[in-house]
């Protein structure tokens, strides 16, 4: 008896709810970001010219801050009345989803057509990866992990070993940190324990990788085991969990960020070791021998990586 009533209620709810839900989706066939300051909307049927061209009918804001309205400067509607292009005064921050509400568009004046414009999610994820790898490279543009960076970039073999070990440890520990942060620290309001928990997890991961590698693949352990101890002295490994906790990243974003951080470190180490192998053959003034010249080279790399700043790929 109860079940039947429940079913009826659900069906009634669906019947009432569906038209409201489908209306917005029906009217809007496609939407996307155009230029820096443009949103393009495609309608599924011809719309009223008067309503569509009036900027006052549009309300646009970034999803996290509904209070900050972005002012639509001009709207141009295509001749067949099937699509419109919204121009804004300032460039849009396309990494955030934007909510667009259009009043007076549908035949029923009460209904406000609302939809969300966002970049494709896979592109957004790749954006995080490339950003951590190049644009915000942890070594050359965030200046983290420098102690280990200068210590292990003398030989290409060392650089590769350190880079791969580091990438494995950082991906595992970042994912574990994410689980701890989302399911233990946040629900129990223990945010002040972030540092202690994250550094503990990193030590644990290093110890676990050490033990597993020693048993499963002794050859690999002989090659990479020495770098495991150094991983813990690297600031990047603790910076990544702190960043993902600050930004409230989800699981996939966490994975991409940690992969990018590890890959970026590997890239930086490899570039640097290639240069330093050559410097050994060069005639360096005695005052610059060793660490000082390495710093100058790193500075030049940092200048080069500055060129990536502001780049947006996806």
């Amino acid at each position: 008896m109860k079940n039947i009533m429940l079913r009826q209620i659900i069906i009634i709810l669906l019947l009432c709810g569906l038209p409201g839900l489908t209306q917005a989706a029906d009217l809007i066939a496609d939407k996307s970001f155009g230029d820096d300051n443009e949103i393009i909307v495609t309608f599924s049927q011809a719309v009223d010219m008067e309503a569509a061209i009036n900027p006052a009918n549009y309300t646009v804001y970034e999803e996290p801050d509904p209070d900050i309205r972005l002012s639509v400067e001009a709207v141009s509607v295509a001749d067949d009345l099937m699509s419109a292009s919204l121009r804004f005064r300032e460039p849009l921050n396309t990494s955030q989803p934007h909510v667009v509400a259009i009043a007076n568009l549908s035949p029923d004046p009460e209904v406000v057509t609302t939809f969300t414009v966002a970049k494709p999610y896979i592109g957004y994820l790749l954006g995080i990866l490339v950003s951590a790898l190049l644009i915000n490279n942890f070594v050359f543009t965030k200046y983290l992990g420098l102690c280990v960076f200068f210590g292990t970039s003398k030989r290409k073999d060392t650089a590769k070993g350190m880079g791969f070990t580091f990438t494995i440890v950082i991906v595992v520990s970042a994912i574990m940190s994410w689980f701890f942060y989302q399911f233990i620290l946040k629900p129990f309001d223990l945010n002040f324990l972030q540092i202690v928990i994250f550094i503990g997890l990193v030590s644990l991961t290093v110890q676990a990788v050490d033990t597993i590698l020693r048993k499963v693949n002794p050859d690999l352990f002989n090659a990479f085991g020495v770098y495991l101890v150094l991983v813990i002295a690297n600031c990047v490994i603790i910076a990544v969990p702190l960043i993902l906790a600050d930004n409230e990243y989800n699981f996939f974003e966490t994975f991409m960020l940690s992969l990018g951080a590890g890959g970026g470190f590997l890239l930086a180490l490899y570039l640097m070791s290639s240069v330093r192998e050559r410097i050994e053959l060069a005639n360096v003034p005695p005052t610059f021998k060793g660490v000082p010249i390495a710093f100058i080279v790193a500075g030049q790399f940092a200048l080069a990586f500055l060129g990536f700043s502001g780049m947006q790929l996806f």
Partner: peptide, 22 residues
């Protein structure tokens, strides 16, 4: 003031201290 200048400043200061020592 640019961040990457930090590398140059530290490197040059180390070289300077080495020079004094020599």
């Amino acid at each position: 003031v640019l961040h990457c200048a930090g590398f140059f400043v530290v490197g040059l200061m180390m070289a300077f201290f080495n020079y004094v020592e020599i």
